[in-house]
Nucleic acid binder design. Structure first.
Lengths: 95, 95, 95, 95
DNA sequence: GTGGTCTAGACCACG
DNA sequence: GTGGTCTAGACCACC
């Protein structure tokens, strides 16, 4: 392998940054909420902001917010209340 | 906004790590090749390694490598020959 | 060349059906779309079916459909929007 | 579905001609030789033309010719003789 | 429910 | 042993 060949191979011998090292957005958001509950920042009965607001401040779409929340509701960590309330979910009891 | 409300909003007021910071793998690879041509590391007539080799050393699938290369071929930056030649593509002239 | 030799050569003197007569699937599909645009069947703003639907009705994989479409998008013949809209691509203006 | 929508779907509702309906070139060639043997056109001891000639008259590469022949040699239908003989293979006995 | 990206694997024809 | 094509399947973020 001559010198130039070696140079050329250098272009290709380092891995690219996998898009999968960046965790999925909905999981990042979900993790924040989990952490907040675990740390006591979110307590039983606390409301989280409306989806629309979260989407805006975190720079993701509302669908992504919903996806993060839905899992937590399924697990019972959040309770979804329907209606006109400005909050969409509530921290459940300690479970 | 009471104190706790403020705390809760803190959970959501920083953007997630955008998936767009991690650009698609095929664009990252494409950029490397473009840079190498621009910087003179790849010169007219230089061969790049076979697709399968690139895929292996960079930790991506061959399809992803091809996708990166295809655009460059379309733009005329690379020339691709099929056959048993050890080189898969050749840098075209200065254009 | 004796008679039998002549017979034997007959085995080999007609070309096989070239694989190139059967053009790649993605080019065949691409051509259909080009023709539809050229013939006015697809007009500015018309949506084509979702990629998955095309793949199903044409009996090819979604990857192949995408490959056909990608070129047309690059050329500006189709415009692609992501999201939940029922249309996947839109015919651009007359260019 | 309005009339135009129906027209558009017509573009996509017929399958493309699968590249796989066109049998692989090396199998087409192989079949011709098998048929010639089966029909008695090629008999024990008959030589087939050199690879290079077959490749030329049939419009395929020499590699493809070799691939077709190799299988037949493996099966014992052809015998490969090395050396300066203008023929590369010979029909074996009836097996 | 749509497009965007990625993977792993396969078969083909070729210099 | 290389590029060309194709498949089946998966996960993600989005209107």
């Amino acid at each position: 392998m001559d010198r130039n060949d070696s140079l050329i191979h250098k272009i290709f011998d380092t891995p690219v940054q996998s898009a999968r090292e960046a965790r999925p957005l909905y999981l990042q958001l979900q993790q924040r909420i989990r952490d907040a509950i675990r740390n006591g920042v979110l307590r039983y009965g606390d409301a989280i902001p409306p989806e629309r607001e979260i989407a805006g401040t975190m720079g993701v779409s509302r669908v992504t917010v919903r996806r993060a929340i839905d899992d937590l509701v399924t697990e019972g960590l959040l309770i979804q209340r329907q209606g006109s309330a400005p909050s969409s979910a509530t921290v459940s009891s300690s479970r």
